Computed example of a mutant assay.
Amino acid sequence: MSVLILALLAGGVIGLALGALGGGGSVLAVPALIYLLGFSPAAATTASLVIVTVTSATALTAHAREGAVRWRGGALFAAAGLVPAALGGAVAGHLPSGLLTAAFAVVAALAAVRMLRPTAAVPDAAPPRPGLIAGTGAGLGAVTGVLGVGGGFLAVPALVGVVGLRMRAAVGTSLLVITVNSLAALAARAGMAESLDWSVVAPFAGAAILGAWDGRRLAAKVSGGMLQRIFACVLLAVALFMLIDAVV
């Protein structure tokens, strides 16, 4: 099977997951780029940032038109992650491939386990503290910068539990945070981005954008809980495979 067809298929599947689940699908971009398309871990995380940025920015416009983006709270959260995302992006290119792969596998496994756990109701709490918001935003920015993932599986619960947003607004606002963090991380990797194989990255990203629209329609027809459990099981299997590959 040609590289172009593989890129289109992988991008479509990842976009479908993003559109159906509202976040988390991009975490499969890195293993797809490494094991299906032959990218090195450092190049895969950089390419993933490109894909995450364009898909998140596209989805952000749709959520903004629906009034589901809280710009003020999202801006503070995103601003706190700018420097950590840029630093993480600069550091990632100097990390050993095995370490980068293992770290990604651990984060992916944690994301899968979290998706398999039932979502607890968030009790009414005191007004969010700016320091806590900034610290959480900085941590998410660092993860985005180093590992090349959007972090929607981390941003959405953080925006609900720390910022106090309702779920619909948290999903839309997370796209703002992801887009800003991904752009900051990409800016720190400008030199690496120039060396990417754009004949693979561009169709991958295009297919992901189109797949995201189909995913939103799929979510209206199939139980969200069932989709999330299926995706989580696939993600956990991929994470275990990557972890074994990194340590063996």
Results as ranks from 00 to 15, higher is better:
113 V>E: 11
52 V>W: 03
89 G>W: 09
1 M>G: 13
122 V>L: 06
214 D>S: 11
85 A>M: 08
187 A>W: 09
128 P>R: 00
232 A>V: 09
122 V>G: 11
217 R>Y: 01
194 E>P: 06
18 L>R: 02
247 V>N: 05
113 V>R: 14
166 R>T: 14
124 D>S: 02
107 V>Y: 06
163 V>W: 01
58 T>A: 13
92 A>V: 07
100 L>H: 01
117 R>D: 12
202 A>E: 01
32 A>T: 14
176 L>N: 09
71 W>I: 15
79 A>G: 12
167 M>F: 11
235 L>S: 12
150 G>M: 08
85 A>E: 09
139 G>A: 09
196 L>M: 07
171 V>H: 01
233 C>Y: 00
232 A>S: 10
93 G>W: 02
7 A>Q: 03
129 R>M: 03
157 P>M: 00
133 I>W: 00
17 A>W: 06
135 G>E: 11
86 A>L: 14
238 V>P: 09
218 L>E: 06
217 R>K: 14
196 L>A: 08
7 A>V: 09
92 A>Y: 04
18 L>V: 03
96 P>A: 10
134 A>Q: 10
78 A>Q: 12
92 A>M: 05
114 R>L: 04
232 A>C: 12
127 P>A: 08
110 L>D: 11
73 G>N: 06
213 W>T: 00
247 V>Q: 12
98 G>H: 09
207 A>Q: 00
19 G>E: 08
147 L>T: 10
117 R>Y: 03
22 G>Q: 08
216 R>F: 01
194 E>L: 14
119 T>Y: 13
155 A>M: 11
11 G>A: 00
151 G>L: 07
145 G>Q: 06
101 T>W: 02
98 G>A: 12
86 A>M: 15
179 T>I: 15
228 Q>M: 06
66 E>D: 14
148 G>Y: 05
65 R>N: 06
74 G>T: 04
33 L>E: 00
71 W>N: 08
231 F>G: 05
244 I>K: 14
146 V>N: 07
5 I>A: 14
18 L>N: 02
206 G>N: 02
238 V>N: 07
44 A>C: 01
78 A>N: 09
238 V>M: 11
123 P>F: 05
72 R>A: 11
224 G>D: 04
117 R>C: 08
16 L>H: 05
183 L>T: 14
227 L>E: 01
220 A>Y: 04
175 L>H: 04
37 L>S: 01
130 P>S: 13
172 G>L: 06
131 G>H: 12
130 P>C: 13
234 V>H: 06
124 D>A: 15
211 G>D: 01
7 A>D: 04
